[in-house]
Design a protein around this nucleic acid. Structure first.
Length: 903
RNA sequence: GCCGCUGUGGUGGAAUUGGUAGACACGUUGGACUUAAAAUCCAAUGGGCCUUAAAAGCCCGUACCGGUUCGAGUCCGGUCAGCGGUACCA
């Protein structure tokens, strides 16, 4: 017996690649063009590799192996984004040092990755928690600090008592922590902030030059949220010298600003509120302060506010307008105050209606008594003339220009741009993160000198949060208390640590030069390798990681550390792999089966009945139902109490009188659902090559797609066919007798060259699924041949090798070739060999295919000959008999279409 | 609500610039091999109609409605559904 045994050949070749350092990147060779392929930095979690990881990793591995064979100097590294909350929480629970947990998890991840045969240069492995690495993370922070891009501020932050830490806005989802779902409240704290807003415009502009999907670029643009408008100053009546600055995108509606609104946190609120209103205002402001973002969001539809009793002066009309306070105005955006134009803004309109404020039309075209008129196209301004400036009759865009000109002239305002993007909250109250290279002397922050880096994490005894928002580091007195090396004064170390994003913001640079000691990366190597040519990862990092990394990169660019404006030239986001499709019947308490629509409103107890795919049929209404003929077969019944039970004959005759609706869908893999596929199990049963191949064969890389175990079996069968194509299974495991060193015939060569073309084009275009299909087509054909020419088998293995490298290496060796298949040049296809002697045209009559004609290639471009032959084709001829030919369409090498009408 | 993406057989998907819709797989059915099973191989497989049967033929069909075109899965307008992002951003 000599059948295909991945469990034997895969470890063998993994060992070979390790020992021969097959995939070590040669840094000294500058003669070859470079190609930098990068996977998104994994967090080595305790649960090990998920099937989602190998999806992106296989894609990059295929590209890396292919580019190497194409003669590129390829950089394809892997490392660990290993700081983070889970290891710390585990430490709190068990007292295990996060370093130990992290090392263990990394070991496991690495073993798993190696078992999949990825062509990483493991000599470049990096780890964000290693002092050699975070030394440079700290160094970059110092540069940010020196450039004035890092500052401390007292900001209301998301304090999560349960986690004992402050979370970034993006780690809070619907008022709960992203990790664990614990409640989050707002409280002010001294925090480190990074001025990413200073780079907003460049982050926006430089998106243009990137080869990223439009949807990701759009998400980034929305996140940055650029708005163009004007800042306008309103004087406060009766408060000499007090002004309210507002930002508006609609300065053209200034004449319609009939009231103003301040955010509850606005500094003027206390100053201008009249005594009569003070008690009411204080209560409102306090209530708003206590609300989380969630509460504010929930009140979306029911706006509340309180009149300050004060009035401001509309600079255009000179009229007094009331100043309100309402929490629909956010202190964090623009100036924290707005001019309200209820006639032309939906929120303002709603608020004005509720509180009986004046609604004035200043842009014609709507009915402002019924709704805000927000449309700008084709609308002209009205009621907008104060004797000095008139907008009447102007289109919105012109009106904006005119009024801004007037405001600037009078010193009442100016054109302005605002971004939704906010500064980056950069500190965390955690132990397991990079310490800030900062000491506090006399209450002032002072950076350590670069020579003192790295500032290493001290060991602690206990990891519990102190119950205060401070990090566990605050409790380590002999680390926290230090002296200023310059002045000898007593100093305190910064006890916050950096967020997990820090280490992943620049790791792509460290891979280039992991042992460099004079900086994050040497200039010479950076210039050779950057930018990253291909970056693959999940879409969950679409905004934050990619925006933060781009920000740091631009700072480093300004410092001259890097030579490119952008870090990642091409980005591909893999789609999520979902669990196997589940076919479920839902049954209500009283026995009725529920449709999808019923489920939306039903709230009682549910029994769920899980069916197999072949027990289900599709009905006319595009839904699924139970196949009555299969109803007696075993099903899994999940009772409302959570009990699971296998039952045969679950459905009674009465149940089957009507169609039983079935829900067919696949869900995100999750432990609680029990639909998680463990890649180790797949490797054990089918091998790494099958797993790799299947993950690529499932469908387009960027699309989400459901897992299917029988799909894995399908590609496994293909690999076995490849094996049998070349190996004599019945005999002693030598070559298959049909594999012979003979010349290939024309048809065989054509089959190979078609495969070469398709596989090559598809790798270039990231269409791995159709590339595999081309490999299958070749094998299906080759299996029929009476001889299997060695040279063709050889070239086929080269095509297979990026996808199924272990099998390719093994067969390469058994065919008697030297060295590693990974070190061979990629085969080129010969266009001459793709051409066949004949051409087959489909012939249409009135756009419908009625026949086919085949003629020698030499005649295929001859319209006369083709049409003559087409008209003779019996299937076509019968439609021409009683008809009159109106038009003859001939597209060379594509189609013939004869248009007729009844005679 | 707003923005974006996606809708193709029983299933995953293919059709790269408008040119024979369903490649390649999975599943199913039938057959071969086998004491039997697994594995493997062969055949059929979008739906319907016609036909004793076969060969062949015809009609319908890419979420739905409409349009452009000799010709539309592909382009345009509208609708619906699913997924993702975002949410008082002035």
């Amino acid at each position: 017996m000599n059948d295909y045994k991945p469990s034997q050949i895969e470890p063998k070749w993994q060992r070979y690649w390790d020992e021969h350092k097959t995939f070590k990147t040669d840094d000294s060779d500058r003669s070859k063009p470079k190609y930098y392929v990068l996977d998104m930095f994994p967090y080595p979690s305790g649960s090990g590799l998920h099937v989602g990881h190998p999806e992106g990793y296989t894609a990059t591995d295929i590209v890396a192996r292919y580019k190497r064979m194409k003669g590129f100097n390829v950089l394809h590294p892997m490392g660990w984004d290993a700081f983070g909350l889970p290891a710390e929480q585990y430490a709190i629970k068990t007292g295990t040092h996060p370093r130990i947990t992290t090392e263990k998890n990394i070991e496991r991840f690495k073993t798993q990755l190696k078992s999949l045969g990825f062509a990483y240069d493991w000599d470049r492995e990096i780890n964000t928690t290693s002092p050699d690495y975070y030394r440079w993370t700290q160094w970059i922070f110092l540069q940010l600090y020196k450039k004035g891009l890092a500052y401390q501020a007292d900001v209301p932050v998301n304090w999560c008592p349960e986690l004992g830490t402050v979370l970034a806005n993006e780690e809070v989802i619907d008022g709960k922590s992203e990790v664990g779902g614990f409640p989050v409240i707002r409280r002010p704290m001294r925090q480190w902030m990074l001025k990413i807003t200073e780079y907003a415009e460049r982050l926006l502009e430089d998106l243009e030059e990137l080869d990223w999907s439009e949807s990701i670029k759009l998400m980034q643009r929305n996140w940055i949220g650029k708005s163009v408008g004007a800042n306008i100053t309103f004087k406060v009546a009766g408060h000499e010298g007090e002004e309210i600055r507002v930002f508006t995108t609609r300065p053209d509606t200034l004449f319609g600003a009939t009231y103003m609104v301040l955010a509850p946190e606005h500094e003027l609120v206390a100053k201008i509120t009249t005594d009569a209103k003070r008690a009411e205002m204080d209560a409102y402001v306090e209530q708003a302060a206590r609300k989380s973002d969630l509460d504010r969001g929930e009140l979306n539809k029911n706006k509340t506010g309180v009149f300050t009793g004060a009035y401001a002066v509309n600079p255009a009309t000179g009229e007094s307008v009331p100043v309100w306070v309402a929490d629909y105005v956010l202190i964090t955006y623009g100036t924290g105050a707005i001019m309200a134009v209820p006639g032309h803004d939906e929120r303002d309109w709603e608020f004005a209606k509720k509180y009986g404020l004046e609604i004035r039309e200043v842009v014609a075209g709507g009915d402002v008594s019924k709704a805000a008129h927000t449309q700008t196209e084709g609308s002209a301004c009205v009621n907008s003339d104060n004797g000095e400036v008139s907008l009447n009759g102007l289109a919105v865009d012109e009106a904006k220009q005119r009024i801004i000109g007037w405001l600037e002239e009078k010193g009442l305002g100016e054109g302005a741009v605002t971004y939704k993007l906010r500064d980056w909250l950069f500190s965390r109250q955690r132990y397991w993160g990079e310490p800030f290279p900062i000491i506090h002397v006399d209450g002032q922050p002072k950076p350590l000198s670069e020579a003192d880096l790295p500032l290493t994490l001290p060991d602690v005894e206990r990891y519990e949060p102190s119950g205060t928002p401070e990090s566990p580091l605050a409790g380590i007195t002999d680390w926290v208390e230090t002296t200023d090396p310059e002045t000898g004064k007593p100093a305190r170390r910064e006890t916050n640590t950096m967020p997990q994003w820090a280490g992943s913001c620049w790791y792509y640079l460290r891979f280039i030069d992991p042992d460099y000691t004079q900086g994050p990366v040497s200039k010479e190597k950076e210039q050779y390798w950057m930018p990253v040519d291909l970056y693959v990862g999940g879409a969950e990092h679409a905004v934050l990681h990619l925006l933060y990394a781009r920000f740091w990169h631009k700072v480093l660019y300004d410092l001259g550390v890097v030579s490119t404006k952008e870090p990642f030239y091409k980005l591909v986001n893999q789609g999520m792999i979902l669990g196997e499709v589940e076919y479920t019947v839902y049954r209500a308490e009283y026995g009725r089966f529920l449709t999808q629509d019923d489920l939306k409103t039903y709230s009682g107890e549910l029994t769920r009945i899980r069916l197999r795919q072949d027990q289900v049929t599709k009905n006319d209404a595009e839904g699924y139902e139970l196949d009555p003929s299969r109803a007696a077969e075993p099903v899994t019944v999940m009772h409302p109490n959570g009990k699971k039970e296998e039952m045969s004959g679950y459905f009674s005759d009465a149940d089957l009188k009507q169609a039983v609706p079935v829900e067919a869908r696949s869900f995100k893999m999750s432990k609680s659902r029990g639909n998680v596929i463990n890649p180790d199990e797949v490797v054990k049963q089918y091998g790494a090559d099958a797993l790799r191949l299947y993950e690529m064969f499932m469908g387009p890389l960027e699309q989400p797609k459901p897992w299917s175990m029988s799909g894995v079996e399908g590609v496994y069968r293909f690999l076995k066919r490849v094996w049998r194509l070349m190996i004599d299974e019945e005999g002693d495991g030598g070559l298959h007798p049909l594999v012979q060193d003979v010349a290939a015939d024309r048809a065989q060569e054509k089959a190979l060259h078609e495969a070469i073309k398709k596989v090559t084009d598809d790798i270039e275009g990231f269409r791995f699924n159709t590339g595999i299909s081309a490999l299958m087509i070749f094998v299906n054909e080759a299996m029929q041949w009476e001889q299997r020419p060695l040279g063709l088998m050889r070239d086929f293995l080269l095509l297979l090798s990026p996808y199924a490298p272990h099998l390719a290496e093994e067969l390469w060796e058994r065919l008697g070739f030297e060295a590693s298949v990974a070190e061979q040049p990629w085969p080129e296809y010969d266009p001459a060999k793709l051409i066949s002697d004949v051409k087959t045209y489909a012939v249409q009559v009135n756009g419908k295919v009625r026949g086919e004609i085949t003629l020698p290639l030499s005649d295929a471009g001859d319209k006369e000959k083709v049409l003559a032959l087409a008209k003779e084709e019996p299937g076509v001829a019968k439609y021409l008999k009683e008809a009159q030919i109106v038009k003859e369409v001939f597209v060379p090498m594509r189609i013939v279409n004869i248009v007729v009408k009844p005679a």
